[in-house]
Design a protein around this nucleic acid. Structure first.
Length: 279
DNA sequence: CATCAGGCGAGAC
DNA sequence: GTCTCGCCTGAT
């Protein structure tokens, strides 16, 4: 068990921000979450600023500390926001516990292919079915069962019909073709891992079902290219309503993606009411 | 009943 | 290069 005190960390906000579809609130308890990632299952508890990770110290150091981006100073990011940009100030204050996770590349590719023209609840269900049916069955130290994310090989073995049965709909073909492409080495994920942002984005877009938006999400949530700025229906709406003269990308160069998450989360869960932004 | 969910590919031009 | 259209499926 590892316990630490941290500002700008909310496991609830991270969960609700929809960047990880295998982090979920556990039934019956407040602020207790379960995460499956990198072949492990982790229980996380939070009370105010005190967070506990139910794992050995070395696992925390080698895996979760990086995964949750705990070395980054999010307070400094929020402080850097233009004080006259009321909307962005409110969005960041609202989601100030969000972190940009460093997730598995393959898992993010499939997850965000599945996410297109889909809602978070259904995305979670799809991913869960894929893991149960094609992922390796594993067991935690205390004996509970979980399923790892399926490998490219395992997914390429699924027929279109079987993928439809996982509720993927028309995305079934994209998942199947992407799995086959990665398995063949048509796109080399080890190479993508060491590429810069633009190069990685271009390479990812060679995959079937990966367009600009999905590629940006993968760059941001797997490769930690925080300059990636995924534009979806929410961001598009906010850009029109709040930034008719354009979003000030130059001011926030290098961490636009982090701000994107504040905006996305605010629009998704909090900032429903339309407010004017005064520059 | 229509519209929408963290879009994308294919085809027309 | 830009524009339009159809697409699985469940919720509202």
């Amino acid at each position: 068990m590892v316990v630490l005190t941290k500002e700008n960390f909310s496991i609830r906000q991270i969960c609700e921000s929809g960047q990880c579809f295998r982090l979920e609130k556990l039934e019956g308890q407040e602020e207790v979450y379960g995460l499956t990632a990198f072949g492990r299952h982790l229980v996380i508890r939070q009370k105010d600023n005190e967070i506990s990770f139910d794992c050995p110290a070395d696992e925390y150091e080698n895996l979760w500390k990086g995964y949750f981006d705990l070395e980054e100073d999010y307070e400094a990011i929020i402080r850097s926001i233009d004080e006259k940009d009321i909307y962005l100030q409110k969005a960041a204050a609202f989601g100030n516990g969000i972190r940009i996770l460093k997730q598995d590349l393959w898992e993010m590719i499939i997850s965000f292919i599945v996410s297109q023209q889909n809602n978070i609840k259904r995305i979670r269900k799809c991913i869960d079915l894929l893991c149960r049916r094609y992922g390796e069955k594993k067991e935690t130290a205390d004996g509970s069962i979980f399923f790892d994310f399926p490998t490219p090989k395992a997914l390429s073995g699924a027929s279109l019909e079987e993928l439809y049965a996982c509720n993927l709909g028309y995305r079934s073909r994209y998942v199947r073709e992407t799995a086959i492409c990665v398995l063949n080495g048509g796109v080399d994920l080890d190479a993508v891992r060491v590429m810069g942002y633009k190069e990685a984005k271009t390479e990812l877009m060679k995959l079937c079902g990966v367009g600009i938006k999905v590629a940006e999400c993968v760059c941001l949530f797997a490769l930690h290219k925080t300059e990636a700025f995924p534009v979806d229906t929410h961001i598009n709406k906010v850009m029109k309503e709040q930034y008719p003269e354009g979003f000030p990308f130059q001011r926030y160069r290098g961490y636009e993606g982090t701000l994107q998450q504040y905006i996305f989360y605010y629009d998704l869960t909090g900032g429903r009411e339309i407010e004017k932004n005064y520059h």
